[in-house]
C-alpha cells in the first residue's frame, strides 16, 4: 500500500466547502474539508446522518460543484473540464450508492443495465459490450442466468453485486462507495465486504468508503476520517483512530458502538453523548462538537480548533488533542497495555 507522499494522490480535496440554499438559509453541508487518498488506498469516512459524508462523496467525484476549495483527480481538476472531457473522465471516478433498487430501471434486465454505461460511453462493439458485462457480472459472482432477470427478481445482496458490476465495466480507478452495505443483512454484508476487498486487489482500485458503521469502516479501511457536522474531526490509520482516538467525538462514537462483550463486562464505562446533532441552519460557534462534548470548556464555544498533525499521519481538530494523546503515551511503561485493554 502506498501512503500519501511521493505519488500524486488518486483523489485529493483541499479546503472544500459545499453549501446549499441561498444567503439567509445557507447550509454548509461540507465546511472546509481537506484530505488526500493515495492510489490503491481505502480511505474511510465515518459519520452520523447529517455529517455531510454523502455530500462529500458526491462532490469528490464531481457530481456536485463545491462552493469553495479544490478537488483533484490525480492531477486533473474535474471542474475545469469541458462537458465532453468530463463525460470521458467520469468513467474513472465512479460512485456506488446505498440503495440498489433506486439504481436499476425495473424494465431493463440486469444485463441491459450493466451494458448501458458502456453503450453511453460508446466503448467496443455491441458483442464486446455484452461479453464485458457478463464478465463483470461473473466477477461479482452473478451467473448469466441471473443477468437475464429483472431487478425485482434479485435479492438485495444480488442487486448490490450487479450495481458493483455496472460500476466496474468502464474500468474505473476510484470508486466512491456510499453506504454500500448498510441495507444488507450481516451475513450478506460480510460477503460483500470480502468482495470489495477482492475487487480492490484484483483491479487495483482506490476506494473512498463512506459509512456510518464503525465496524464496517474500520474493517475495510487503511485510513479513516471522522466527520461531524460538515467538518473532519480526526484523520488517521483506521486501527489507531478506533483504538486510540484523539478526538472526543471519535472516542464517543467508538464507545457508543455496541460490542459483543463478555456478559460481565457489559456494564463498562460508556460515554453516552447528550443531545443531538445541532440544526444545520444555526451551527454552533467555536468547535462544532462543543454542544455535545463531554470535555468542552468555554474556549471550545468561542474558538474553533485548527486541524493539526499531532503525530505523523494523525490529524486532529480539538483543543484537548494533546491531553487525549497523552493518555496513550508510554509514561512509565505498561501504559500501552492499558489503552488496549478496553477493547
Amino acid at each position: 500500500m502506498t501512503m500519501a507522499g511521493v505519488d500524486v494522490p488518486a483523489l485529493s480535496v483541499q479546503d472544500m466547502t459545499v453549501s446549499f440554499g441561498r444567503t439567509r438559509t445557507i447550509v454548509r453541508a461540507v465546511d472546509g474539508v481537506s484530505f488526500s487518498v493515495a492510489p490503491g488506498e481505502i480511505f474511510g469516512i465515518i459519520g452520523e446522518s447529517g455529517s455531510g459524508k454523502s455530500t462529500l462523496g458526491r462532490a469528490a467525484v464531481g457530481m456536485i460543484t463545491p462552493s469553495a476549495g479544490a478537488v483533484r483527480h490525480g492531477d486533473v481538476d474535474p471542474f475545469a473540464l469541458s462537458r465532453a472531457q468530463m463525460n470521458a473522465h467520469r468513467r474513472k471516478y465512479q460512485i456506488i450508492a446505498q440503495d440498489p433498487n433506486a439504481a436499476f430501471n425495473p424494465r431493463m434486465t440486469i444485463l441491459e443495465s450493466v451494458i448501458e454505461p458502456m453503450a453511453i460511453a460508446r466503448t467496443g462493439t455491441r458483442a464486446e459490450r455484452r461479453a464485458r458485462a457478463l464478465e463483470m457480472l461473473d466477477t461479482v459472482a452473478l451467473s448469466p442466468e441471473m443477468a437475464m432477470r429483472y431487478p425485482h427478481e434479485l435479492s438485495g445482496g444480488q442487486k448490490q453485486r450487479a450495481n458493483i458490476a455496472r460500476a466496474l465495466v468502464l474500468d474505473p480507478e476510484v470508486l466512491v462507495c456510499d453506504e454500500v452495505v448498510a441495507a444488507l443483512d450481516v451475513s450478506i454484508q460480510a460477503d460483500m465486504l470480502n468482495l470489495f476487498w477482492r475487487l480492490k486487489r484484483d483491479f487495483n482500485l482506490t476506494y473512498l468508503f463512506i459509512s456510518h458503521d464503525l465496524n464496517v469502516v474500520s474493517h475495510i479501511s487503511d485510513r479513516v476520517a471522522v466527520m461531524y457536522f460538515g467538518k473532519i474531526m480526526e484523520i488517521g490509520p483506521a486501527d489507531d483512530v478506533m483504538n486510540r482516538p484523539l478526538h472526543p467525538y471519535s472516542e464517543a462514537l467508538r464507545s457508543a458502538e455496541p460490542e459483543i462483550a463478555a456478559y460481565e463486562q457489559r456494564a463498562r464505562e460508556r460515554i453516552i453523548l447528550q443531545g443531538e446533532i445541532p440544526s444545520a441552519l444555526n451551527p454552533p460557534a467555536g468547535c462544532r462538537f462543543h454542544t455535545r462534548c463531554p470535555r468542552a470548556v468555554d474556549l471550545c464555544a468561542s474558538n474553533e480548533p485548527d486541524q493539526r498533525e499531532l503525530i505523523p499521519g494523525r490529524f486532529v481538530a480539538c483543543h484537548f488533542a494533546e491531553e487525549m494523546l497523552a493518555r496513550f503515551l508510554p509514561v512509565g511503561g505498561g501504559q500501552e497495555a492499558e489503552c488496549v485493554s478496553q477493547e
Binding site: 435479492s155 445482496g157 450481516v186 451475513s187 450478506i188 454484508q189 460480510a190 460477503d191 465486504l193 470480502n194 476487498w197 477482492r198 486487489r201 458503521d213 465496524n215 464496517v216 474500520s218 474493517h219 475495510i220 483506521a238 486501527d239 478506533m242 483504538n243 459483543i260
Partner: peptide, 23 residues
C-alpha cells in the same frame, strides 16, 4: 456461530470475513 463470525471488525484480516453462503 456464522452470524457472530460475519460481523466486521478492525482486528480481522480484510477479505476473510466468514460470510454465510447462499441466502
Amino acid at each position: 456461530t456464522g452470524l457472530l463470525h460475519s460481523i466486521p471488525d478492525a482486528g480481522r484480516a480484510r477479505g476473510t470475513l466468514n460470510a454465510i453462503p447462499g441466502r
